[in-house]
Nucleic acid binder design. Structure first.
Lengths: 203, 203, 203, 203
DNA sequence: TATGAATGAGTCTTCATTCAT
DNA sequence: CATGAATGAAGACTCATTCAT
């Protein structure tokens, strides 16, 4: 009897996504979700132990996407700064980001804007922290490798760039940006970022 | 009238600020605020008609600061784009922003991050919208005045810059940034933005 | 300093009458009355010990009018039944009732329709009881005096006539009946009642 | 599902009827009803969405009885006035009224005397209005059909008869009138009404 | 007398969760 | 697995009344 179970899970996740999107975590009630999904209120607890766990399952894919992005890009310190500063590289990376994001818009929106009150309410913050730390590490590395670069960039400034990346992501998620516009956005973003960094680092 | 009225108001606003900061609007309860402030629960209603009004009074100064910034800077379309692109001008403006903000950190943080559930929950969004619209108008003006500039910047891109300004603001508010670091941050921010815009507009 | 005090009393009674009329005793709040009268909330308690006492003072005149009617008419058992059954007598009595009532419409309305929750909430009931008892006594008397009359009227029937008198009163109070219409109403009422009683008693 | 659902509904309705009867709608609290019924306070809301809905369910049968009476009797304009003035007809109709009422005494009492504050607080008034309007229509009809009748009865007078009917009803509901006494009451009522109307209309 | 602040019990209603079947 | 009933704590807010000045 695997089929019916999975069907209920799916209905629950979909209904919960709609309700959380509409009301936010705190104002969404389990009753709402029961009604929207057609699943009996108490039966929900046979699938998820709590409202919080349900929420975590709803936004799970979004969390995984972001974690993967962090691992794959910010984590890979092998790439030299010179290569990283090339428009090609940058555009590819940011393109990947946005691509991943594109198919997880709705759970991402929940995770970013509707998590207040849940155990993930600090996810955005913590994620930005981790990303920042990785970039800082990367900069330290690069400074050791290329001492000629005037890379006395403040930690806050580094943080800002992570946050801006995030802000871009949030806007893309919030608006319904089609693939074409998306490409131009990313292109402009990369242009600006590159120019900025070069200026800052006197490259 | 054991304690003079204003003392109670102050105690209430301070306690409410702490509680709202700790729990957010929705999870903060009037009981909490009563306990934290030492003011009797029902007595709170002699000062503020509702939880929402109390919240609005707590973040009132922050709202006013932001409204003033919008009026004074984004509103003044007189300045030519060439002047605006000068580092001097920019730094001054952004400096003013950050200066104003500096002394309203805590209410600003509440307004920006803790308003979910209150009547101001959409303030951040609406403020960003209004700011964006003003900048768009400004760009349209400039394009008419300087047709040689390749200012076919996407609307989204304009929005992004407003949002980034906002993101900077948010980070400044969130961290405890001292005045010295603040100056460097602003300086770097202006450098990057200027370089980016010049690049984009092929100036 | 008799003047100012009396002025406050008057303002309070008038405001209270308006509020009680608008909301009924239970839903009217002392705050409402304070606001409507312009008298400080706690100052009301210098004039009336409680909401209930205030209400009783507001409807006091109405109570007195009704008590007087009971004493003067239902109480005076001297009049012979033959005389009482004459249209002249009846019309005069009912006319007096309605006349008295005419100038106490508003407090009467409060007493009759808005007293729920106050210590006078049973006044209407108790008044009808007393009136009924008096009439019953009167009938007993008459039966002793005029054995030939088939006056085996049920107690309930007697009660009904008191209640109907009351119902007439209530309608007159509720609607704004002008003096001319009032006269016709009373006339018709008496016609019907007389005819009814004669029929019942086989006079 | 310890006790079957209907049992709880019954217990709730009975307890609510008792509490509403004792205190009236406004002063009756859900806590009272919970305690009286033995049903958990919050559990009540699994059966009725609000205090008002609970009240409406308690007095529902009474409402239906009255609506039915209005439809079946006041509505049927086919009967000629001559027939209607016959004691037989009248007695039958009023008898039906009282019969219906007999088995709904308690909810009727709630509806008529205890509804202040609920959404049915104006039911009595509105019902009397509707009944009056129907009777007025009937009189207009009869006047057209029997022009010889001096039926220049004032509108107020018509209203009074409806109200008296109502007053009778209220008294029957209030007292515990046994079936025998009831019959005599109705009989006397009809006698009086008939005599009165004949007199008024110079039949 | 008059005031504004204070009090404490009370209102209806909602919620996430658990129980019994 | 599924169900509907049950629970207990908590929510914002109101009120008549009293206190201190």
């Amino acid at each position: 009897m695997q089929y019916p179970k999975d069907d209920v899970r799916r209905k629950l996740l979909e209904a919960a996504a709609r309700i959380f999107a509409r009301k936010g975590y705190l104002k969404a009630s389990m009753r709402d979700i029961a009604a929207e999904s057609g699943v009996g209120l108490s039966n929900i607890y046979n699938y998820y132990d709590s409202k919080d766990e349900l929420f975590r399952h709803v936004v799970g894919p979004a969390v995984q996407v972001l974690e993967r992005l962090l691992d794959e890009h910010h984590g890979r310190c092998g790439t030299d700064i010179m290569a990283m500063c090339s428009p090609d590289y940058c555009e590819r990376v940011v393109g990947e980001y946005v691509g991943f994001i594109d198919c997880q818009r709705r759970p991402l929106a929940l995770l970013l804007f509707r998590a207040q009150g849940s155990s993930l309410e600090n996810f955005r913050e913590e994620f930005a922290d981790r990303a920042t730390r990785l970039v800082e590490q990367y900069f330290a590395d690069m400074k050791r490798r290329h001492p000629q670069i005037a890379a006395d960039v403040s930690g806050f400034s580094i943080r800002m760039h992570t946050v801006w990346m995030f802000a871009l992501l949030e806007e893309v998620v919030k608006r319904d940006v089609g693939p074409d516009e998306l490409r131009q956005i990313v292109s402009e973003y990369v242009t600006i970022e590159m120019a900025g960094w070069r200026e800052l680092m006197k490259l």
